[in-house]
Simulated assay, not measured.
Amino acid sequence: MKISDILQPGAIVADLRADDKPKVLETLTDALLSVEKGIDRDEVIRVLKERERLGSTGIGDGVAIPHGKLKKIDHLMLSFGRSRGGVDFDSMDGRPAHLFFLLIAPEDSVGVHLKTLARISKLLKNIPAREKLMGAESTEEIHRIIADEEQNL
């Protein structure tokens, strides 16, 4: 499954203003809920914070992929945020995160959830892709860059 098929342009925050991890999770959850109706905001945030307590989803190189699973959904949900200034996300390399993908999956999904996390990680390990995303001017351009770069995965 393609990232660009899951990620709706309305769930992209091109200028993430959050200055700490909890605010990033809240802002990206709100972006997700702007396109996905009927989901409990507090439950999503609780699941994400619970996952972060197990270990940071800041994978380094300016990237974080907060994720979690919910019982009452039947498909993957994704939002994206870009922080030009960066946010301390307790990343493995100790550096701030700038690019965030928030992934919510159905509780019973294993394979598709892990494949999507791996696909996002692979996309963002590509330095030119990260640079393009950091330089994008709009949510539409961010979505197009993700779709274009995905063709090379």
Rank of each mutant, 00 (worst) to 15 (best):
R17Y: 05
I127V: 15
S79I: 13
E26F: 11
L25S: 02
K37R: 15
E52A: 11
K132C: 06
D40V: 10
H143N: 07
D88C: 10
H113G: 01
I145T: 09
V47T: 01
R41Y: 11
S4T: 08
K72P: 00
K21S: 09
D20P: 00
L54I: 12
R82Y: 07
K122T: 14
R53T: 14
A97L: 11
R119D: 04
D42I: 06
D74V: 07
M1R: 07
L70M: 14
D19E: 13
D93Y: 04
E137T: 13
G81T: 09
H113I: 05
P9G: 10
F89T: 04
I45T: 00
A31L: 02
D108G: 07
V63M: 03
H113Y: 15
I45L: 11
L103G: 02
I145L: 13
D30K: 12
K37S: 12
V13A: 01
R84M: 08
K2Y: 13
G55E: 03
I142S: 00
D5S: 14
A105I: 03
S4K: 09
A118E: 07
E131P: 05
L48D: 03
L54S: 13
A64W: 00
A105C: 08
G55P: 09
K21H: 06
I12W: 00
P96W: 01
L48I: 03
D61W: 06
A118N: 03
L7R: 02
E140I: 05
L123K: 08
S121V: 10
E107L: 12
I142Q: 00
D20N: 12
S4A: 15
